[in-house]
Design a protein around this nucleic acid. Structure first.
Lengths: 211, 211, 211, 211
DNA sequence: TCCTAAACGAGACGGTACGTCAAGTCTTCTG
DNA sequence: CAGAAGACTTGACGTACCGTCTCGTTTAGGA
C-alpha cells in the first residue's frame, strides 16, 4: 500500500499551517467573509502568499477548510427522550448560527457578515468547494440523524416517517430564518419547532409547559 | 393628502429603467451572479454606468431589485384541500429554485451560479439589501401563510399549530436542500415533506399512493 | 447701425452674472483650478448649471473670463525715469503672480494651484480660449509697451532696441520663474532684472544703491 | 558604501518600463496631453494598468517622467563666441518648443495640445511633480549657465552681470511667447533676443546683418 | 391684457477616465 | 524543493466631473 514515497526537498512547515489558520480565524472574525483579504491573512500569519496558495487553491477553499475546522463539534446526547435531545441539540446549533450572524459586524463600520451565506455562495461557485461543504454538513448531521433513527426504533417516531425529511424540517427552518427571513432564532422558537415536528412524527403529547 | 409634490428637474427615464432591468436579466442568466459586470449591463442597456448607479448604489442592490421584480408571482390556489394546495404551491417554488440552480452554468466553462446563494450573501453584506430581501420574502410569503390560516379556520389544521412555524418547516426544507446539502428537490420530496408536516399539524390522512 | 433687434423673451439676469462670478471667484481661491467644479460653482451662486453654460460654454471659458475680470489693472506711471517706472510696474506684476501661486494651497490638504499654469493649458486646449488669453495679455501689456516706446523717444533707450523684445525679457523672466523653475520673485530680483535689461537697451548707469 | 542590499522579491521588469515609456511616448504624440488615457497606454504597452500605477502614482507623474526622459539633451558647444553659442543653443530649444506646440493637433479634429503648458499645470497640481520638473530644468540648464560663466571669465560678459538673470531673460522670453502670447519663435526672434541681451551684458558688437 | 419666446431651476443623462482593490500567478533569491 | 518577498495580470468596481437634455416655471415685451 502506497509507500511513504520518500519526500524530496524541504518539507512543508506544519508551523505555517497553524499560524495561517490562526491568523485567518482572527481575520475572519474581524472582517467577515468578503472583506477578508488573502494578502492580509498572509501578512498576519507572517507567511508568504505563495505558502497560502500552495495549501489552498482559493480563498473560498481556505475559508471552507477553516470553518470546517473551527466548527465546534455539537455534542449529541441520547437520553431516550427525543424531544428533549432535539431541543438541546438544536439550541446548540442555533447558538452557533446566531454567533455567525454577528461576525464582522463592527459597530459603526459598515459591516460585512453572513459567513454562512458566503460559504453557501462559495459552494455554488466551485464544484469542489460545494462537495467539501456538503461533506462537512453530512458529517455534522450524522449524529442527529442517528438520534432520530434510534428514536424510531424505540417507537417514539412513526415507522413510516423519514429521518432525513424530519431533519430537513428542523435544520431547514433554522437556516431559513438565518439566511432568508432574518427572524430571530430563540429558545422559544426552537421548542415550538420541535413540538410541531414531533407532533407529526408520532410522539403523543407535546410538552405543555413551554413559553 | 399626499399632494402631487410638483416634480422638479428632469424626471427619471422609465425607459431606461426597463432597458436596464431587461439587459441585467439577460446578463444574469448568461453569466450568473459573480461574472455579471455592471459595465456590461450598462453597455447592453445602452445606458451610462452612472445611470445604473444613480438608481442602485451597488451591483448587489441592482441584482436584488432585479430578482425581486422577476420573481414570478407564485400563484396560490385555495381549493379547500390544504395538502393539495401546498403541494401545488411548493412544487412551483421548487421549480423556481431548481431553475435558479442552473443559472450561469455554461457547459464546458467553469461556471458561477447559485443566484439564490449570492443573493443571500449580498443580503448579509449590506444591511439595506438585507431589509429589501426580507421585505421581498415577507411579501412573497403572505399568500401561503394566509392559506394555512384559512385551513386552520376550516379545521384542517390543529388550532394550536403556528402557520409561521409550519411554513418555516416547508420552505426551510427546500432552501436547506438548495443551499446547504445540495440534494435534489423533486416532486416526490415535496409530497413527502407536505405529508410529514401535515401529519403533525392536521388530521388529514396522508395520501397513500405517492411514490 | 445694428438696430437693437428687439429682444424677445425673458432677458438674462444680470444679477445671476454677478452672483456667478462672485461665487466662482471664491471657489477658485479656495480650491484652485482643477478642483474647481462647475456643479459647486452653480450651487454656490444659487443658480442652475444651465445658467452657467448659457453664458460660458466651458469651465475653461468661465475661468478665463473670471481671471480677465479680476485682473487688477496694474497702473503704469510714466515719471520720465524708465528704470524706476519699470521696477514699480514689475513689482506690482510680481506681487500678483506670487499671490496666484498660493491660490488653492490649503495647508494640510493636498493642494492644487497654479491658476496661471492651468489658464495657459486651457489656452492650449481651446483655440478660442487661447485667443481670449492672448487678447487679455495684449490689452494688459499695452501700457508698459507704450512706456518703453516713450522712453525710447526720450532717448533713454537705444533707437534700434525693440520694445516687444525688451518686454518679453522682463515679463518672460518673471513667468519663467513662476511657471517653470519655481524660484522666488522678490524685489531684489526685479531690480536686478531691470538693471540688466536696461544696461543693454541704452541707459548709462545702473542704479548702484540696490541690495 | 551603499551595499547591494540584496534585493528581495521579484524585481521590477525593466522590459515593462521600456515598453510603457515607449507606448506612452507614441500615445502622447498622437493624442496630446489631456486625451492621453492611462488605460490605453497600458493596453498598448501590453501591461496591466496596475503596473503603470506601481511606477507612477498618477498620469501627471508618468508624463512628466516621460518628458524628462525624451528631453533630448540639447548640446551646448562652447566655441569661445558667446553670441554664436547662445544662438545655436536657443535655436535648438526653440525648435523643441515649437515641436511641442504641434503635438496632438490632429488636422480636422479639435485637438488638445500644449504639452508644455499641461506639464507646467501638472507641476502646479502636485508638489512632488513640481519638484521633479524643477529638478529637470535645473539639470537641463546647468550647461548653458556654465557657458555664460565661462564667457564672463573670458571677459565677454560684464563682471557684474548675473548668469542666472541673463538666462532667465533668454529662456523666459521663449517660454513666455510659447505659453502666454503665442507669438512665433523663429530664428530672427532668437537672434534679436540674444543681441539685445548681450548688448547689456557684454561688449560684443551686435551682428548687424540680421533680418 | 394676454401671448409667446426665452431664461431659469432642478436634476437626470451620456460619456470618459480615473485611481483602486483583491485574486491568483510568476519570478527571484535564500535556506 | 519550500518559503519569503513582492512584481505581475486580470477584471471589475465605484467615483468624479463635464457638458447636454428635459422637464416645469418665471418673466418680460409685443400684439
Amino acid at each position: 500500500m502506497t509507500a511513504p514515497a520518500a519526500r524530496r526537498g524541504r518539507p512543508r512547515s506544519e508551523d505555517a499551517d497553524e499560524r495561517i489558520l490562526q491568523a485567518a480565524h482572527e481575520l475572519l472574525l474581524q472582517r467577515g467573509y468578503d472583506r477578508f483579504a488573502m494578502d492580509e491573512a498572509a501578512v498576519r500569519a507572517g507567511v508568504a502568499k505563495t505558502t497560502l496558495y500552495r495549501r489552498w487553491p482559493t480563498k473560498d477553499h481556505l475559508l471552507v477548510a477553516l470553518v470546517a475546522k473551527i466548527q465546534d463539534e455539537v455534542p449529541v446526547a441520547d437520553t431516550g427522550d427525543v424531544r428533549r435531545d432535539l431541543v438541546v441539540y438544536l439550541t446548540a446549533v442555533a447558538g452557533g448560527l446566531n454567533r455567525m450572524r454577528r461576525v464582522g459586524r463592527t459597530a459603526g463600520d459598515d459591516p460585512s457578515a453572513g459567513v454562512v451565506a458566503e460559504l453557501v455562495a462559495a459552494a455554488a461557485r466551485h464544484p469542489d468547494v460545494g462537495e467539501a461543504v456538503r461533506a462537512l454538513f453530512a458529517r455534522r448531521n450524522t449524529l442527529p440523524l442517528a438520534l432520530l433513527d434510534r428514536a424510531r426504533e424505540r417507537g417514539e417516531l412513526r415507522a413510516d416517517s423519514s429521518s432525513a425529511v424530519l431533519f430537513d424540517q428542523l435544520a431547514g427552518a433554522l437556516y431559513y430564518r438565518l439566511l432568508v427571513t432574518g427572524e430571530p432564532i430563540g429558545p422559544a422558537y426552537v421548542a415550538e419547532l420541535v413540538d410541531q415536528v414531533l407532533a407529526g412524527a408520532g410522539t403523543a403529547t407535546p410538552n405543555p409547559e413551554r413559553t
